[in-house]
């Protein structure tokens, strides 16, 4: 019995990155805020580069609480969609070429979202990572943390519930 020869690493990597880019670039609001995603294996880190138009308090100055919430929510939705997609791509149920060609899956819908503001967002780049605590057929629960210079000192965290999309028929 012989094992199938693994695909070259560049091929696998290129396909995964292209699938992720297709998913992220399909959402106008993600582009508007300038959020990008950094992938290491199946782990995603959202990156929000600082920009003047993201300021909420010009006196401090600090990032707008709405921007912080948006970063967290975008990270949660993309993180959740990606975790489901990853499994389906790996299982061969979804052809990543279809995604890249623009046939994107429906995204999960936010049911509720609760943000904890721990400290003010400084005028510099912010990062966020989501953890899917439960992903069921209909509902999912996701926790997400955002930090700036120091990973151990989150400036905001959030928990949200999401309605999973019904598969396209």
């Amino acid at each position: 019995m012989s094992r199938r020869r693994p695909e070259p690493v560049q091929v696998v990597k290129q396909r995964r990155d292209a699938a992720l880019q297709a998913l992220v670039q399909g959402v106008p609001y993600v582009q508007f805020l300038g959020i990008t995603f950094d992938r290491r294996g199946d782990e995603l880190t959202a990156v929000l580069p600082f920009h003047e138009r993201l300021i909420g308090n010009p006196m401090l100055p600090a990032i707008h609480g709405g921007v912080t919430a948006a970063l967290l929510e975008v990270t949660a939705v993309i993180g959740l969609a990606w975790s489901v997609l990853w499994d389906e791509i790996e299982a061969g149920a979804i052809d990543p070429e279809q995604l890249i060609a623009g046939r994107l899956p429906r995204l999960p819908k936010t049911i509720d979202f609760t943000v904890d503001y721990l400290r003010s967002g400084l005028p510099r780049d912010a990062y966020a990572r989501a953890q899917v605590n439960r992903s069921g057929r209909r509902y999912a629960s996701v926790h997400v943390e955002a930090w700036q210079d120091n990973r151990a000192r989150a400036f905001a965290q959030a928990t949200g519930h999401f309605l999973m999309p019904t598969p396209r028929g």
Partner: peptide, 15 residues
């Protein structure tokens, strides 16, 4: 948030 329907992203509503 969803280009197929043109519905606003939850983050904008939140802001």
């Amino acid at each position: 948030g969803d280009p197929e329907t043109g519905v606003l992203h939850g983050g904008a509503v939140y802001a």
